[in-house]
């Protein structure tokens, strides 16, 4: 049965990814990107990596996509934004993502309610093993990732501060 769940989630991932790269509107593409990431999180779960699935949802679908959305909204601040938002939030636009997410929701309900006979139960690598390995042999990689994130923080602050400064001068 895990096989069928995997193929359904894979189909959802492929369909939503095609829709991401063919949309004209960035906000719609971001919604489909969230659907794609959610379906890949389902696949991670089926592969016996529940921790990676949680991280996929929290960081990718949560933090990174929200960052994208912030910038998309910010770039449209001045230009006829009310009219644009009405165009974005047309009710018909939500049907596609809603159907795809509904499929994933049905899968999740199936796994939770029927307690998922036949998923990769023997081969689950849980958070405990991941944490032990992460802060054991991979400690140096964690330090490097920390430095990378610090560099990104400083870089993003530098680039964004000049933008906001000029923006404020234009407005005042």
């Amino acid at each position: 049965m895990a096989l069928a769940l995997f193929y359904i989630a894979a189909a959802v991932a492929l369909a939503s990814t095609v829709l991401v790269i063919t949309r004209r509107n960035a906000a719609h593409a971001l919604i489909y990107l969230v659907v794609s990431l959610l379906s890949i999180a389902v696949i991670f779960f089926l592969l016996g990596a529940p921790f990676a699935a949680a991280l996929e949802i929290v960081i990718y679908a949560g933090a990174i996509v929200v960052l994208f959305l912030f910038v998309v909204m910010m770039l449209n601040l001045g230009r006829r934004s009310a009219e644009r938002e009405r165009l974005w939030l047309r009710p018909g636009m939500w049907i596609g993502p809603a159907i795809l997410v509904g499929v994933l929701l049905l899968e999740m309900l199936y796994v939770i309610v029927l307690d998922a006979p036949g998923t990769t139960r023997g081969a689950v690598v849980g958070p405990k093993e991941v944490g032990t390995a992460l802060f054991g042999p991979y400690l140096l990689a964690v330090e490097l990732a920390a430095m990378l994130l610090l560099a990104a923080l400083i870089g993003a602050y530098h680039l964004g501060r000049r933008y906001l400064g000029d923006r404020r001068e234009e407005l005042s």
Partner: peptide, 20 residues
């Protein structure tokens, strides 16, 4: 999964700078 987490950190860093 550890390599996935490192990719995640890379993606977050990349997206922050690129959006700037």
């Amino acid at each position: 999964q550890i390599m996935f987490m490192l990719i995640l950190a890379l993606a977050a860093a990349e997206v922050a700078v690129a959006l700037g």
